[in-house]
Write a protein that binds this DNA or RNA. Structure first.
Length: 704
RNA sequence: GGCGCGGUAGCUCAGCUGGUUAGAGCGCAUGAUUCAUAAUCAUGAGGUCGGCGGUUCAAGCCCGCCUCGCGCUACCA
């Protein structure tokens, strides 16, 4: 058993709001786990914070004409307050723009620099804007794409053709700052020699062993995590650049590195360390115990997009530095979809966390309703899907009907029969509560294994057991015959113990409801160690709620969404469903790309369009999207390479009539000369359709 | 194209190192019950475990091939 725990959740990038998928991925599971550890009385710190550097933020600032600071302030505040309102109980939410973080990161860099063997310097050619006296990050350079001729391609990628580019490949490069041609200058950068860490990383991932010491059991890691890491390692590791020529970020702490900052991926994970330091500073603790002591367990909660980073790159950094612990587990979640499709801000598909709170502001228990739905359908081992109908079902059938109703039954009966006072019992508690202890063990076991879906289902088993127990004993029947029946007292006594246990075990999952149950029982607020204490009592056969204790008045915990008497909550949910419906309608409606600028007839007349028919089609090796087609134009045959393999199989194409751009300059694609282009229509889903005359119409005729 | 993960009841998913009649929640059907938020409880019907082939006394679980989904990566429009 570990003495203390250090838990981290992925630092949100302060360049946009967070949606429900983020919550279900890295924050909610960590919150459940941390709340559970606290209830067990463990020494635990959970840190997070905003990731506020990187070129994406400076570019956006430029575009919007505001300072980067303004952007990060906005999203830092938004994330921080939204997390709080959802009960995400970080011990510290820091930010990477803070001075302490700059200091921590610079120290980290210097340590690696001075140690020797971990970093290497390289001179590379890079574009420079003399007018702004600045080296240009890839995204700050535009030019003509060497592959497709698109004139606004970025230095790292062409958005027209999707090619990955380097700035040096661009034809006629221009700086986005001054708009002028940049100078090519030589600049120095530092690289982290990730490659030299490959061997021990592989052993660590595969066996959990480092330097002959067993650090974790790889069987406790998720399969997709281990799989992706080993796959990445098999591909071989390369030194990674850890500096940039940029004025936004953490200055590289070397005299010769003026105008250079640490690359954002290098400083971001160090944010976990600074956040811990800041927390320690404010709470009179020693941060190093949490990072370096052998009796501390480190756990990273992340989404699957971050696996390689947290399982390979960051551990390598920590080991290179020395002294630091490696993570004991990285329980990465997969992605959450929304009503069958990916979250997409631009399409308006999905809902952001603060948006949910706003739209559900009149919905009682909105926080726990959301948390519960996300836990029940958490993407623990594969992508999951959030659906409003499920949200409603989980809330009504499990929270209200199962858990809420059980608690209500018990409180109502206790008030009705005994004026709210816990009756005396003759029952042997140990035996009577044996099945309950079993379920409690199951819940804690699942939590220990990061299986939050199963854990919350097991929590439902607890109230389910209570419902069944009440039904079996049917105290209302016995009471009619004998109001003084000992069997009724025993039954209510046992039931009350179960409710008391629920008030503890429910807290990690639904922290807004648990205190309400405490209040119904007239029990004091939960504190660190409460659960451990209760579990010990149960084990010893002692009651959690002694005879003579006066419980509170009944009050409903959950107002159902589908409710005959009040449809206000259903309306809130339905509004969300309607919004999605509208998105779909808009997309399949009249919205189309704008018409291009007017051209003259002469422009059109330059095109030589001809009817034709495909006579042969074959796939091209090592190209997923391309097919090699042979097109008959009547008098001649043309070879055409077309990017249609996603939608058409070679064998179904021969005989297909087409219209061909017959005078397009030939071009080599994957070594095959393409002598023309086939006209295709593309709809909003990216589906392709041939534009052509009907079958057998005739080949080689002019289209105009 | 390479690699990783996944394809199990109508829906959402569990199934540890292969071992007797494959599980849960919801939904569905029938019955019981009334303390309770038209809640609860019992019973039952539903599966060629993506497909084909193989290893084994025995395969959802191991091996090979194929297929579909997601992701990474390469190539490419």
């Amino acid at each position: 058993m570990s003495k203390r725990y250090l838990i981290t959740s992925a630092l949100p990038y302060a360049n946009g709001a967070l949606h429900l998928g983020h919550l279900a991925g890295a924050y909610l599971p960590a919150d459940i786990y941390v709340r559970y550890l606290r209830l067990l009385g463990k020494d635990v710190v959970w840190v997070c914070g905003s990731d506020e550097h990187g070129a994406a933020i400076t570019i956006r600032a430029k575009k919007e004409g505001i300072s980067p600071q303004k952007i990060i302030d906005k999203y830092h505040e938004l994330a921080k307050s939204t997390f709080e309102r959802l009960g995400i109980s970080f011990d510290y939410y820091h930010r990477t723009s803070a001075p302490l973080h700059h200091e921590t990161s610079q120290d980290f860099f210097l340590k690696l620099y001075k140690k020797g063997g971990e970093l290497e310097e390289r001179e590379i050619g890079q574009y420079y804007d003399p007018e702004y006296d600045q080296f240009l990050a890839d995204r700050f350079i535009v030019g003509t794409c060497p592959k497709c001729g698109h004139e606004e391609a970025y230095g790292d990628q062409c958005e027209n053709c999707g090619s990955d580019l380097s700035p040096l490949e661009l034809i006629n490069p221009r700086s986005t700052l001054s708009g002028k041609a940049p100078q090519l200058k030589s600049t120095k950068h530092w690289y982290f020699k990730l490659d030299k860490h490959e061997a021990w990383l592989r052993e660590w991932i595969a066996t959990g062993t480092v330097d002959g010491e067993q650090q974790h059991d790889p069987k406790t890691w998720k399969r997709h995590v281990v799989g992706q890491c080993l796959s990445w390692l098999d591909g071989g590791l390369q030194p990674r650049s850890i500096t940039r020529d940029l004025d936004w970020g953490i200055p590289v702490p070397l005299p010769e590195a003026k105008g250079k900052v640490l690359y954002v991926w290098f400083d971001a994970p160090i944010g976990y360390i600074s956040s811990t330091r800041k927390w320690a500073e404010e709470n009179g603790k020693d941060w190093e115990l949490y990072w370096k002591d052998k009796d501390t367990t480190l756990i990273h909660f992340i989404g699957k997009d971050n696996i390689v980073f947290h399982c390979i790159v960051f551990p390598a950094m920590l080991k290179a530095y020395g002294e630091f612990n490696l993570p004991k587990n990285v329980p990465a979640n997969q992605f959450l979809n929304f009503e069958g499709q990916k979250f997409s801000k631009s399409r308006g598909w999905g809902i952001e966390q603060h948006e949910y709170l706003e739209e559900f502001k009149d919905f009682p228990n909105k926080e726990d309703a959301l948390r519960y739905a996300l836990i029940r359908n958490m993407p623990e081992n594969k992508d999951a899907d959030f659906k409003w109908d499920e949200f409603t079902d989980f809330h009504d059938k499990e929270l209200a009907d199962n858990l809420g109703n059980f608690v209500n039954r018990v409180i109502v009966l206790t008030n009705k029969y005994y004026d709210g006072v816990v009756p005396a019992t003759s029952q042997g508690l140990r035996a009577a509560l044996a099945p309950v202890r079993e379920i409690a063990r199951k819940i804690t076991g699942e939590l220990d294994a990061f299986s939050f879906r199963s854990a919350v289902l097991a929590l439902m088993e607890l109230s389910s057991w209570g419902n069944t127990y009440l039904q079996d004993v049917s105290p209302w029947k016995l009471y009619k015959e004998d109001p003084d029946s000992q069997a009724v007292k025993d039954c209510m006594f046992i039931s009350l113990q179960v409710v008391a246990l629920l008030s503890l075990l429910a807290e990690p999952f639904i922290p807004f409801t648990a205190p309400k149950i405490r209040k119904l029982l007239n029990l004091p607020e939960l504190q660190n160690g409460s659960l451990q204490e209760a579990l010990d009592k149960l084990e010893a056969g002692q009651p959690l709620l002694p005879s003579g204790h006066k419980a509170g008045e009944p009050e409903l915990l959950f107002a159902k969404i589908v409710d005959r008497k009040d449809d206000s909550r259903l309306q809130i949910v339905n509004r969300q469903k309607e919004k999605l419906q509208k998105v779909l309608e808009t997309e399949k409606g009249e919205e189309r790309e704008p018409i291009k600028p007017t051209i003259q007839y002469e422009d059109f007349a330059k095109l030589d369009l001809r009817t034709g028919a495909i006579t042969a089609a074959e796939s091209i090796p090592k190209a997923d999207k391309l097919l090699k087609l042979t097109v008959s134009l009547g008098s001649e045959q043309r070879t055409v390479v077309a990017g249609i393999a996603k939608y058409f199989k070679p064998e179904e194409l021969p005989g297909q009539p087409v219209v061909l751009v017959a005078n397009l300059a030939p071009r080599k694609l994957r070594g095959i000369e393409s002598q023309g282009m086939i006209l295709m229509a593309e709809n909003e889903k990216g589906e392709l359709a041939f534009v052509s005359p009907k079958q057998g119409w005739g080949n080689g005729f002019i289209v105009r």
